[in-house]
Simulated assay, not measured.
Amino acid sequence: MTESSYTVAGMTCGHCATFVTEEIERIAGVTAVTVDVDSGRVSVTSDEGLDTEDVRAAVEEAGYELTHANRSARDDRTPAATERDHRGDPHAGPGERLP
């Protein structure tokens, strides 16, 4: 799962949030959208990373402007799976066992 956050300008009410949410939910792979009208922050959870231009197009279709994108991957894998991925990696984090 990947979680990304965006700043959207022009939203003033719950209806605005609904329009933005509906358009972003149409993007393939999106699993959840949360909108905070007061801050303009939109958080999107998706199966994989999203193309910012797809999000921008969805926001513009809703009638608003995407002003900032901050993508932040969240790793939902188990610690054991993460550990396997870092075997032999000289940059493995603390507590990760290396062979």
Rank of each mutant, 00 (worst) to 15 (best):
R84G: 07
T52F: 06
T82D: 07
I24F: 04
M11V: 02
R77W: 14
T21A: 02
V42A: 01
C16I: 12
A28D: 15
T2S: 04
T18R: 14
R71I: 02
F19T: 10
L66F: 00
D38M: 13
L50G: 05
H15T: 02
E48D: 14
G93D: 08
E22C: 02
A57I: 09
P94L: 01
T31W: 02
R97V: 11
T67H: 13
T18C: 05
V35W: 12
G88D: 14
H68W: 14
V44T: 06
E61F: 11
R41D: 13
V33L: 05
S5G: 11
D47R: 15
V20T: 09
E53L: 14
G29F: 00
E25V: 07
V42C: 04
P99R: 10
Y6D: 08
E96T: 12
E25Q: 15
A92F: 03
A69Q: 05
S5C: 03
E48Y: 06
F19S: 15
R41N: 14
S46Q: 08
D76C: 01
G88Q: 05
E83M: 08
R56S: 05
T34F: 01
E61P: 06
T2F: 07
T78V: 11
G63N: 06
L50W: 05
S72C: 15
G29A: 11
G49A: 15
G14Q: 06
H68D: 15
P94G: 02
A80E: 15
S5A: 14
N70V: 11
A81I: 08
V20D: 03
